[in-house]
């Protein structure tokens, strides 16, 4: 499942890795991959405790490292303080933080309440600041801080405006963190391509986005393990000289406009995302 190399790597043996939003989807796949390379995992989610406990048990059984799951809302600073305290008590330090927890509402910008925008900002962005603040004393040398963003930070998707704005803000914060924390910790952003997940299905246009992405990405949609490989590289010593960057693990999707004229002709008319998705 993890790693495409012929030999099994152990880049994270005895490293302590925190992944927010790791009970399902991309975060879950990341956790398994880190565990397979020997890491200790601190897992987190807010509304899917069963999946989080299940994953922690699985990693504890199969992995070389330990796994602990914490059910808490990273959109509250006090909880991040608690999380840092738990990591300090149980592991004594942190080596890698992956901030992957998403939240927000699918809404046109002009129909979004301040409350809804704040939810997106708290979980995506405030949490990033809180993680930086409370975990900074726990980082050793060659630490890695990775933020999981999306193409929505740069391009408009229907109803994704406020979430995209939160992601863009987080990407900017990551650049500043990279500057502030050099040379001890490298901070970067990854924009993975879409994967089949509960989060994706939360959007009304998920089917349409899947189709477009698959058609327009030079390398098509790939198994989540390929997207995980990029993130693990970014968190590994191989990427020690990479910091403040945004890297798209998207098979080239963000670089193309029209991959194949024939594909375009075959596509059903797009009158609006919802119309097509509902059909």
């Amino acid at each position: 499942m993890t790693g495409t190399g012929t030999t099994r790597r152990r880049r994270f043996a005895e490293r302590v890795v925190l992944i927010t939003g790791s009970s399902r989807g991309y975060g879950r796949a990341l956790a398994r991959a880190f565990a397979a390379e020997g890491a200790h995992l601190v897992l987190n989610s807010h509304r899917s405790a069963t999946d989080g406990r299940d994953l922690a048990s699985e990693i504890n059984r199969a992995g070389d490292g330990r796994a602990v799951y914490v059910c808490t809302d990273v959109g509250e600073e006090e909880n991040l303080r608690g999380l840092a305290g738990l990591v300090a008590d149980q592991f004594g330090r942190i080596d890698v933080i992956v901030h992957n927890a998403p939240s927000g509402f699918e809404r046109p910008v002009d129909a979004t309440t301040w409350y809804e925008f704040e939810v997106a900002m708290r979980v995506n962005t405030y949490a990033l600041i809180g993680l930086a603040r409370w975990f900074r004393p726990l980082f050793g040398e060659r630490g890695k801080f990775l933020y999981v963003s999306s193409i929505g930070a740069e391009r408009a998707l229907a109803g994704y405006g406020t979430i995209g704005a939160a992601k863009a803000a987080s990407e900017a914060l990551i650049r500043s963190l990279a500057l502030e924390w050099a040379p001890r910790v490298q901070a970067n952003t990854i924009r993975p391509n879409i994967i089949s997940s509960v989060s994706l299905r939360s959007f009304s246009w998920s089917d349409l986005l899947w189709k477009i992405t698959d058609e327009e990405s030079p390398l098509g949609i790939q198994d989540v393990s390929r997207l995980v490989d990029v993130a693990l590289w970014m968190c590994s010593p191989d990427a020690d000289y990479v910091t403040g960057q945004v890297i798209s693990a998207d098979g080239g999707f963000s670089t193309t406009m029209c991959r194949d004229g024939l594909t375009i002709q075959q596509r059903p008319p797009v009158n609006g995302a919802r119309t097509v998705v509902r059909s």
Partner: peptide, 20 residues
């Protein structure tokens, strides 16, 4: 200093699961 485990252990909305 980050909160201690004892501090956060009692907090609502913060639940730790350690499989071991």
């Amino acid at each position: 200093v980050p909160a201690t485990a004892a501090e956060n252990g009692s907090s609502a909305g913060f639940e730790v699961f350690d499989p071991s």
